[in-house]
Design a protein around this nucleic acid. Sequence first.
DNA 1: GAGTGGTCTAGACCACACA
DNA 2: GTGTGGTCTAGACCACTCC
Lengths: 235, 235
Amino acid sequence: MGRNSYYQIVRELILKRLKTGQLCPGDKLPSERKLCAELSLNRNTVRHALLVLQREGRIFRLERKGWYVNPIRLTYNPANHVNFARLAASQNRVAHWTTEDSGIITVDENTDAGDEEGFPLGTNVYEMENIFFLDGQQVAYTLNYLHAERLEGIIPKTEDRALTQVAEEEYGIPLVQRSLLIRPQLLSRKVSSALGISHGSPGVYVRRIKTDGSDQVLTVEHEYWRFDAIELRVG
Amino acid sequence: MGRNSYYQIVRELILKRLKTGQLCPGDKLPSERKLCAELSLNRNTVRHALLVLQREGRIFRLERKGWYVNPIRLTYNPANHVNFARLAASQNRVAHWTTEDSGIITVDENTDAGDEEGFPLGTNVYEMENIFFLDGQQVAYTLNYLHAERLEGIIPKTEDRALTQVAEEEYGIPLVQRSLLIRPQLLSRKVSSALGISHGSPGVYVRRIKTDGSDQVLTVEHEYWRFDAIELRVG
DNA sequence: GAGTGGTCTAGACCACACA
DNA sequence: GTGTGGTCTAGACCACTCC
């Protein structure tokens, strides 16, 4: 099965090394030209094999740096309000993240937060970007919009606590998830660049909308995960 | 942005035709060699662009036949007990499926239904395979294991009704979903062959385990969806 | 500056699809 | 039988990384 083509030789060599532990999550693969020499194959053939392994979620690229072995997947329950740090810790992983507060904007048709399910047009919202790292490796980029009046000054408080937790404890607002959308898709150039991976890697887009329990939308969250960084579990 | 390479020219030509409706879901693209001629580019370059578009979820391959425009995604709520036909109909899509009843097997360590969360080893289960078609195109392959004693003779009854429905109405057993796992991953050769797509296309694996409400596992269901065929929505 | 990945060309042969 | 996609070789140049 699939052993009659040269690129499968490359693929199976890598898979074998992954299996035996010669290659571990985070390790760098030998350069393409080294693999060519080792196997006496053309670089295009080797490259084809590497691209297949990428699609298979076994390896990934850092732009112009090389090929690396994928991390172990984080098990993630999108229906819960997640504290990323705690989630990672519970799976013996080390997490950190960066926050960029882009200030207040007004939702219009072009905002990623103002479709028929998001904020009403004209709402003032905080825009916030995060990049999440797992074991030192970027795994997700998020773009969040928060109701600026109802959640005034909340962003600095989310440094070490989950959003829902802060909203409940400090604002007395229990955030209720209204809608959760999960879609496998291409990561845009912006996102793949934030994640340090090359344009064209697949990813998982998760959109969550949370309300105050009645009909007012309080947060619209866009998460873009590396395809191979997570698995989702409900229940 | 990204317009300084030749393969982007191919990519953007296809994207433009998709946008203007010159190419619609299900349409076949011109052959690789036609595209080469049209754009005066090497076949490898054209092919690279097509592979990128494939990763982006815009087009897909039928093995040795050619490139086709992706279908529109089906919106799918994995937490509900789904009747595929009704789901499709509610989104104005036409569904059909094939069923293969593989008879009774006994769960052992190698069965896809017997890990720590599935059936106890030694349980007798029905094995059933389905292929689901949407608008005439394969979109999912499923492999299901059903408790053979508790659900004796259930398979023929699921031809036109959902499993949970039959279990409840005819066996008086309300199936309760215990665990739901969603993982983007490569489709194995078996699955991609069942779906008529080429080896290496990404997909979404969904595993559901259902019990009788107490702790006895009654079904273990493995679903393998085309990456681009669905989006998941909860709530 | 040496080595790397990213892109590209110009060929080639095969197995398979389709008419 | 013709054309197609699937695979492969042997080169090439560039932009970038790393030392």
